[in-house]
Computed example of a mutant assay.
Amino acid sequence: MPHRYILFYKPFNVLSQFSDRDPNAPERQTLKDYISVPSVYSVGRLDRDSEGLLLLTDDRKLKYRLGERKFAHPRTYWVQVERIPDAEALERLRRGVTIQNYRTRPAQVQQLIDEPILPPRNPPIRYRKNVPTAWLELTLTEGRNRQVRRMTAAVGFPTLRLVRVAIAHLRLDGLEPGRWRDLSPREIKPFWR
């Protein structure tokens, strides 16, 4: 039986798992509210307060390959931060920063000139009249828990909104929040090079 590979646009406030393991938490949405394909699991995670591209599969070898640091598959995020980062902060992100006694790998970082076109978030981010925001495009080759948020905070620019727009060559283009599609063999093949 062939493997399944699913590309999903995870909305804000949805857990990256099929069940909520916290019995004391108020009812929260999970992947099962959107995807009814049996035996697929997410490759990596997005925090509940993050949005964007999530890959799901039943292919254990691919899941291992994408999760293992030595393969260094890039993940690209659009990050709205509080205030306007200066050149020094961007350079620190590029070189890598220390978060929780760990030095991150160097990252590709650029400030976006225009705000990216994204569906509105519900609820919207907090708006502060006297505090400007900026959008960054940040590409990492590792994925630790809340890493992007910790990195931007470490250089003095807290993350307000975080959207993963790409995993390697796969992009969010054409998907709306809460929607998914199967990947073709041609889209999976580059992961094995």
Rank of each mutant, 00 (worst) to 15 (best):
E27W: 02
G52A: 03
P11E: 06
S50E: 02
K32P: 00
T30P: 11
D47A: 05
D33P: 09
N24S: 12
Q29K: 15
F12L: 14
Y9R: 10
Y9E: 09
L7G: 06
K10E: 05
R21S: 11
L31S: 03
E27K: 14
L55D: 00
P11L: 04
S50W: 05
F8A: 11
Q17L: 10
I35G: 14
F18I: 05
D49A: 08
V43D: 14
P26A: 03
K10G: 07
P23D: 04
P38K: 13
L54D: 02
R21T: 13
L55Y: 04
D20N: 10
Y34H: 14
G44P: 10
F12T: 00
L56Y: 03
R28I: 06
Y41N: 10
F18M: 09
Y41T: 12
G44H: 05
V37S: 03
K10F: 05
N13L: 15
D49K: 02
V43W: 05
E51F: 00
L54A: 01
V14E: 10
L53C: 09
P11T: 06
S19K: 13
S16W: 10
E51W: 01
E51K: 01
S50F: 02
S39C: 08
A25P: 06
F8M: 03
R45H: 05
S36P: 00
R21W: 00
V43P: 10
S39Y: 14
V14P: 11
L53Y: 04
V37L: 05
L54N: 01
I35D: 04
R21D: 12
L56E: 06
L55F: 07
P11S: 04
P26S: 02
S36C: 09
F12K: 11
V43N: 05
N24D: 13
G44E: 10
L53V: 03
S19G: 02
A25W: 06
E51G: 00
L15S: 12
L54W: 00
I35M: 13
L15C: 15
P23R: 11
R21C: 01
R21M: 04
R45W: 08
L7W: 07
G52H: 09
F8S: 07
F12C: 02
P11R: 05
L46C: 03
P26V: 01
F8N: 03
L15H: 14
D47F: 06
K32Q: 15
F8K: 11
R28C: 01
S50K: 02
D49T: 00
Y34D: 09
S16H: 07
L31K: 06
P38V: 13
R45M: 04
V43I: 15
Y9A: 08
L31F: 08
P26K: 06
Q17G: 12
E51A: 01
L56S: 10
Y34E: 02
D20A: 08
R28E: 07
Y34N: 04
S19R: 15
K32D: 15
R48F: 05
D20F: 09
T30N: 11
N24C: 05
F12M: 09
R28Q: 11
N24L: 13
L56C: 09
Y9L: 08
F12V: 00
T30H: 12
F12W: 11
V40W: 12
N13V: 02
Y9P: 06
S36N: 15
L56A: 09
S39Q: 15
R45Y: 07
S36F: 12
Y34K: 10
A25M: 10
S42Q: 12
D22L: 03
L53A: 01
